[in-house]
Lab assay of single mutants.
Amino acid sequence: KVILLEDVKGLGKKGDVVEVKDGYARNFLIPQGLAVEATKGNLKEL
């Protein structure tokens, strides 16, 4: 699961917690600054 930092077409809006494949999160969303891993600490910051 990841928390979206920006609106991502076809996935969700900023602040949404979405389930995506590990590779998509690690190789695209997180490096592009579009999402962060949905850890307990990150979820509390919402």
Results as ranks from 00 to 15, higher is better:
Lys44Ile: 13
Tyr24Glu: 05
Glu6His: 13
Leu43Glu: 12
Leu11Gln: 02
Gly15Ile: 00
Lys21Tyr: 12
Lys44Pro: 15
Lys13Leu: 12
Val2Thr: 02
Ala25Tyr: 05
Gly41Tyr: 03
Lys21Val: 14
Gly41Val: 12
Val8Thr: 03
Leu29Trp: 02
Gly10Asp: 08
Asn42Tyr: 04
Ala25Trp: 08
Ile3Cys: 06
Phe28Asn: 04
Glu37Arg: 11
Leu29Arg: 00
Lys14Asp: 02
Val17Thr: 08
Leu11Val: 10
Asp16Ile: 04
Gly41Thr: 14
Arg26Val: 06
Lys14Ala: 08
Val36Leu: 11
Lys14Arg: 13
Gly10Trp: 13
Leu46Trp: 04
Asn27Pro: 01
Asp22Leu: 11
Lys14Gln: 08
Val2Pro: 00
Val2Met: 10
Gly33Pro: 00
Glu19Asn: 09
Lys44Gly: 15
Ile30Gln: 02
Leu11Ala: 02
Asp7Trp: 10
Pro31Val: 15
Glu37Phe: 15
Ile30Lys: 03
Thr39Asp: 11
Leu29Met: 03
Leu29Ile: 02
Leu29Gln: 01
Leu5Asn: 03
Leu43Val: 05
Asp16Gly: 04
Asp7Glu: 11
Arg26Gln: 08
Asn27Gln: 12
Asp22Ser: 15
Asn42Trp: 03
Arg26Ile: 08
Ala38Glu: 08
Glu45Asp: 15
Lys21Leu: 13
Ala38Val: 05
Leu11Arg: 02
Leu5Arg: 07
Lys1Thr: 09
Ile30Thr: 02
Val18Arg: 05
Ala35Gly: 06
Gly23Val: 13
Pro31Thr: 14
Leu4Pro: 00
Ala25Asp: 04
Gly15Phe: 11
Gly12Ile: 00
Val17Glu: 07
Ile3Asp: 00
Lys40Gln: 15
Glu45Thr: 04
Val18Ile: 11
Lys21Cys: 12
Ala38Arg: 03
Val17Ser: 05
Ala38Gly: 06
Lys9Val: 12
Leu46His: 15
Val17Lys: 06
Leu5Gln: 06
Leu11Met: 06
Glu45Ser: 08
Lys40Tyr: 15
Gly10Ala: 07
Val36Lys: 09
Glu45Trp: 08
Lys44Ser: 11
Glu37Cys: 13
Thr39Ile: 07
Lys40Leu: 15
Lys9Phe: 12
Asn27Ile: 09
Leu34Met: 10
Ala38Cys: 11
Leu4Arg: 00
Pro31Cys: 13
Ala25Gln: 03
Ala38His: 09
Glu6Val: 13
Gly12Tyr: 01
Val8His: 04
Gly15His: 09
Glu37His: 10
Asp22Gln: 12
Ala35Val: 04
Leu4Asp: 00
Asp16Val: 05
Lys14Phe: 04
Lys1Tyr: 11
Asn42Ser: 07
Val8Ser: 02
Glu45Val: 04
Asp22Gly: 10
Ala25Pro: 02
Leu34Pro: 01
Gly23Ser: 12
Tyr24Leu: 06
Lys1Phe: 12
Gly33His: 09
Asp22Cys: 13
Gln32Lys: 12
Val8Lys: 02
Lys40Arg: 07
Glu6Cys: 11
Thr39Gly: 08
Leu43Arg: 03
Glu19Ile: 12
Gly15Met: 05
Leu34Trp: 09
Lys13Cys: 10
Glu19Asp: 11
Gly33Met: 09
Ala38Ser: 09
Lys1Asn: 08
Asp16Pro: 00
Leu34His: 04
Glu6Ser: 14
Ile30Ser: 02
Lys13Gly: 07
Ile30Pro: 01
Ile3Glu: 05
Val20Met: 03
Lys1Asp: 05
Lys1Gln: 11
Ile30Tyr: 11
Thr39Trp: 05
Lys40Glu: 15
Gly33Trp: 03
Lys40Met: 14
Gly23Trp: 15
Glu37Ala: 10
Pro31Asp: 12
Lys9Pro: 14
Leu43Phe: 06
Thr39Ala: 06
Leu5Phe: 03
Leu29Cys: 03
Lys13Ile: 10
Val18Pro: 01
Gly15Cys: 08
Pro31His: 14
Val36Ser: 06
Glu37Trp: 15
Leu46Gly: 14
Arg26His: 07
Val17His: 07
Lys9Asp: 09
Phe28Pro: 01
Asn42Pro: 06
Gly12Lys: 00
Ala35Trp: 01
Val36Glu: 07
Ile3Arg: 08
Lys9Ser: 11
Ala25Glu: 02
Gly41Glu: 15
Thr39Glu: 08
Lys40Trp: 15
Val20His: 01
Gly15Pro: 00
Glu19Ser: 10
Leu5Cys: 07
Lys21Thr: 13
Val2Arg: 00
Ala25His: 03
Leu11Pro: 00
Ala25Cys: 05
Gly15Tyr: 11
Gly41Cys: 13
Leu34Cys: 06
Asp16Gln: 12
Gly15Leu: 05
Val2Ala: 02
Gly41Pro: 09
Gln32Leu: 12
Gly33Leu: 09
Asp16Lys: 05
Val8Ile: 11
Phe28Ser: 03
Gly10Met: 09
Ile3His: 04
Val2Lys: 01
Gly12His: 00
Pro31Leu: 13
Asn42Phe: 05
Glu19Pro: 06
Leu34Ala: 04
Val18Gln: 02
Pro31Met: 15
Pro31Asn: 14
Leu43Ile: 09
Leu34Asp: 02
Lys9Gly: 10
Ala35Lys: 00
Glu45Leu: 06
Val18Gly: 00
Gly23His: 12
Leu4Gly: 00
Leu11Trp: 09
Asp16Phe: 08
Leu4Gln: 00
Glu45Asn: 13
Gly15Asn: 08
Gly15Thr: 02
Ile30Gly: 02
Glu6Gly: 10
Gly33Glu: 05
Tyr24Phe: 10
Asp7Arg: 09
Asn42Ile: 05
Ala35Met: 01
Val36Asp: 04
Lys14Ile: 07
Asp7Ser: 09
Asp7Pro: 08
Leu46Phe: 08
Lys1Ala: 10
Lys44Phe: 07
Ala38Ile: 05
Asn42Met: 07
Ala25Thr: 04
Glu19Tyr: 14
Lys14Pro: 03
Glu6Phe: 15
Lys14Thr: 07
Asn27Tyr: 15
Ile30Ala: 02
Asp22Met: 11
Gly41Gln: 13
Asn42Asp: 10
Leu5Val: 08
Tyr24Ser: 03
Ala35His: 01
Val17Trp: 06
Val20Phe: 03
Gly23Leu: 11
Arg26Cys: 04
Gln32His: 10
Val17Asp: 02
Asp22His: 12
Asp16Met: 11
Val8Pro: 00
Leu46Pro: 15
Tyr24Asn: 03
Asp7Lys: 06
Ala25Leu: 07
Leu29Val: 01
Val17Gly: 02
Ala35Cys: 04
Val17Leu: 08
Leu5Met: 10
Leu5Ala: 03
Thr39Phe: 05
Asn27Met: 13
Ala35Pro: 01
Asn27Lys: 12
Lys40Asp: 15
Gln32Asp: 06
Tyr24Ala: 03
Asp22Ile: 12
Leu11Asp: 00
